[in-house]
Design a protein around this nucleic acid. Structure first.
Lengths: 192, 192, 192, 192
DNA sequence: TATGAATGAGTCTTCATTCAT
DNA sequence: GATGAATGAAGACTCATTCAT
């Protein structure tokens, strides 16, 4: 009888709102979200957004955590794939290149990192998954090279945000090879 | 008692406002600046910010251009230093590491790149100086390696934003060496 | 003491705001209304005016439509009265004279016509009721004379705005008689 | 030597400003003029508009007086022409019709009358020239008919503002003939 | 005297948050 | 508990007016 107006699933509604907020953060930035936009995107009444979250900040935080979860999932998948294929520059480059083509994932990462710059709590989250990348490269290539590779991967993400064309797989592979593998001093051209 | 503010130096005042806006962009992000914050920071009345800039967008744009100028100056200086020292991974790593310690410069770059994500005009500016980095590495190391190195440098900047400790100079040098130097086909180091 | 205003009747509140805006348009002109004036007149907080109308233009439009409705009602009543009394100059003059004494109605018409000068949509509305006047005179007196009479009636409205004393009923009747009646070619009255 | 920047003719500059304000009043309405718009239109620096007029109201008033002068001149010319041609409905209708085609004159009159509605001083001015029309018709047609004719003429002006097509000369002439000339009672059609 | 910079009041509008229903 | 009306605090922007130069 009272169907239609009252969805009887608070959990689901809460998730819908968080999801909508997360999408908006990726699309328009963390500064630009409002109760109204979130409600409209989620297709829920305005009151719901304040019913489930005491303040807009709370909503924002939960949405960011949602995005971090998403990224970690993505990282996990990539890790599994890399480990299946062998933790070699070739495999990483191939999967990374595919990853960079996933605009959604790239934008998500960019959005979270951007938010992290001004928010210590988000910064902790961002660090965590960055550490994860290091964590699965380090056993094979050592801590230092793993960290350098993670930095390079971060750079790729930002490069993809600003430039229309991502780097070629070939270029990525060569760079990763260089970063992860020691190079004989002699083969570096000296600057005359 | 003598507080009837009434200076009379348009050039200087305009600069003060632009400067204040630029600082705020670095500190709180491009989305967060308001006339009020800029006026307060610059120590001028609210009306001055609209007297000199028709819209907040205009003010934002000019402040961003100011930041870009600053970065380009910084890039130019680093380039000159690198060219003086030889365009080698060692020299670059040393100067880069020093650069990363200049928190102000790093934050400036980060702020502009962040702004670039949602603003095509800023994106063009950001690309320009990224191209500059490539431009002075390419003659020595080739286009592809130069681009990979630029990406790695971008990554360093972002790493510095999120992590408290920047990478060691040693790690940076090794990575740059690997990126810029040709590597034997087998990723296993040859005994030589 | 009991002044924590918090009623809860959207329909009524919307009407109050529209009504207040309409009154102000009549009193101070369409250009002079502001959210603040409307809110003060309606006795509602500033926020209510924007809660119910997305823009001031929307509020203006609705208020003007309200005034147009009012005028059309007035026109309709007068038409009914004239048709009951016979569509003769005498009857029209008598009812018109009474109408001119209704300062409120006159001012309303003047306000809408003034607004119409710079607003095409309002112009359409204004034209519509002007056509109505023509429409009920034309069947009896012909299109041309009906239009001339409508113009004369418009003139009366404006005359009433600027002059303290409206025209005498006698003068109005004679003029309407002249406008609506065929006149011998020579403008000298024939002895008959 | 000091030419170019300093026009040495205060009277002329004052007139330029008044003229610009008058034009703007006709174009955008009396409510919409600002110092800045007037200065831009007159091609004088902003400061001039406050140098020559203590307040914006003063400037407005003088501009309105200028418009009234303009209208009176126009009325005078028409009067002279009518008196030369004979103060007959035919002559008046012909000259009036020509007058209605002068959009500039019509808009000027409309602007002043509109301003007059809310401003007692302007109302006096507006009345004066309306009286002038009566004044030159009355000696020939009597006070009452002259007033009725003036009212009809006012109506024509407003009709022209709202409708795209002004009344035909023929219709105007017939109406004026009827207003100015007595009509035998018998020739009025009785209502049914 | 002529100019335009300086300033704050006031405008429209958006929105987080509260709370009646 | 769910909804959306209520409200005021900002925010961007415009401008009359003042006054340094």
């Amino acid at each position: 009888m009272t169907e239609k107006r009252r969805r009887r699933d608070p959990e689901a509604r809460r998730r819908e709102i968080t999801r909508a907020a997360a999408e908006l953060i990726v699309e328009v930035g963390v500064e630009a979200i409002t109760h109204r936009k979130v409600a409209a995107r989620a297709g829920v009444p305005l009151g719901s957004t304040t019913q489930y979250f005491a303040t807009l900040d709370d909503l924002r935080d939960e949405a960011l955590r949602e995005l971090v979860r998403e990224i970690e999932e993505h990282v996990d998948k990539t890790r599994a794939a890399v480990q299946a294929a062998g933790v070699t520059p070739e495999a990483i480059a191939r999967l990374l290149r595919a990853s960079l083509a996933d605009a959604r994932a790239i934008e998500t990462e960019r959005a979270v990192v951007t938010a992290a710059v001004h928010d210590p709590r988000v910064r902790d989250l961002a660090r965590r998954w960055s550490d994860e990348v290091v964590g699965f490269l380090a056993p094979v290539h050592g801590q230092d090279r793993a960290r350098a590779a993670a930095v390079f991967i971060d750079g790729l993400v930002w490069h993809a945000q600003i430039h229309d064309e991502p780097l070629d797989e070939q270029v990525i592979r060569d760079a990763l090879t260089g970063i992860l593998a020691p190079v004989p001093a002699a083969s570096v051209p000296s600057a005359h």
